[in-house]
Computed example of a mutant assay.
Amino acid sequence: MEGAEGNNKTRRGVFVTVGTTSFDSLVRAVDSQKVKQELVAKGYTHLLIQMGRGSYVPTKSEEDSSLGVDYFTFSSSIADHLRSASLVISHAGSGSIFETLRLGKPLIVVVNEDLMDNHQSELAEELADRKHLYCARPQTLHQTVADMDLNSLLPYSPGDATPVAKLINKFLGFPDD
């Protein structure tokens, strides 16, 4: 990824999605200077934030900024945003996770620690253990971006339901075969 900065005119966008919920701590984290600096250092040029029902409004970028930033609340479909992204940062909703993985996009899932009895975090952590994505918390997102090596991620094979079935069985307390 070296050499992606500088005069390279290639658009490398990051799409952030919180789904239909409010996840201000994720929006605030990606809007922080720490995360923005790490994204620029990795060669990303644009940041598009889908902020859902949240009340925190991100800062749009200045004209001279090295990272273009824009945001919106909802869209009838985020599929086009996912397809055009070079990196996706998402809440831990299974729909967003699997849609992104099916598209073969690098993914950082940020777990919402404010949710009680959060089963979504178990799915995200299991898929991270299997090297299909990175898993972070809002307060560790900048470090995850800094440390990520997208070449170490393994493609997710949507045709093989066995890993998901095993995860569901584990979650339900059934013995592993």
Rank of each mutant, 00 (worst) to 15 (best):
M1A: 13
E2F: 01
G3T: 03
G3W: 15
G3A: 12
A4V: 00
E5K: 07
E5W: 02
N7A: 11
N8G: 04
R12W: 10
R12H: 00
G13H: 02
G13F: 02
T17I: 07
S22K: 10
S22T: 06
F23C: 04
F23W: 07
D24E: 10
D24N: 14
S25P: 07
S25R: 14
L26E: 08
L26H: 02
A29M: 00
V30Y: 08
D31R: 02
S32F: 08
S32D: 11
Q33V: 12
K36R: 15
K36L: 07
A41I: 03
Y44T: 06
T45V: 05
T45L: 05
H46L: 08
H46I: 06
L47F: 07
L48W: 01
R53E: 12
G54R: 07
S55Q: 15
S55N: 12
Y56S: 12
Y56I: 10
V57Y: 04
E62D: 15
D64Y: 05
D64E: 14
S65R: 05
S65D: 15
S66G: 02
S66L: 09
S66T: 08
L67M: 04
G68P: 00
V69Y: 10
V69E: 07
T73G: 14
F74P: 06
S75Y: 09
I78W: 14
I78N: 13
A79E: 13
D80C: 06
D80K: 13
H81K: 14
H81R: 10
S84Q: 15
S84V: 06
S86A: 08
L87N: 13
V88K: 00
V88H: 01
S90T: 01
S90A: 15
A92F: 15
A92M: 05
S94H: 06
G95D: 06
G95H: 04
S96M: 04
I97Q: 07
L101N: 09
R102V: 03
K105P: 03
K105A: 02
K105L: 05
P106C: 09
P106R: 10
V109C: 10
V109E: 02
V110T: 09
V111G: 14
V111M: 04
V111P: 03
V111T: 10
L115R: 00
M116Y: 03
M116D: 10
D117I: 06
N118P: 01
N118I: 01
S121C: 01
S121L: 00
L123C: 05
L123M: 03
A124M: 04
A124L: 02
E125W: 08
E125V: 09
E126G: 01
L127F: 03
R130F: 00
C135S: 13
A136G: 12
P138I: 12
P138M: 05
T140R: 15
T140Y: 15
L141N: 14
Q143S: 09
T144Y: 13
T144H: 08
D147Q: 12
N151Y: 08
L154F: 09
L154Y: 09
Y156N: 04
Y156H: 05
S157F: 06
D160E: 07
A161E: 13
P163T: 08
P163C: 01
L167I: 04
I168P: 02
K170P: 00
F171M: 11
L172V: 00
G173C: 11
F174M: 09
F174Q: 11
F174Y: 14
D176H: 03
D177L: 11
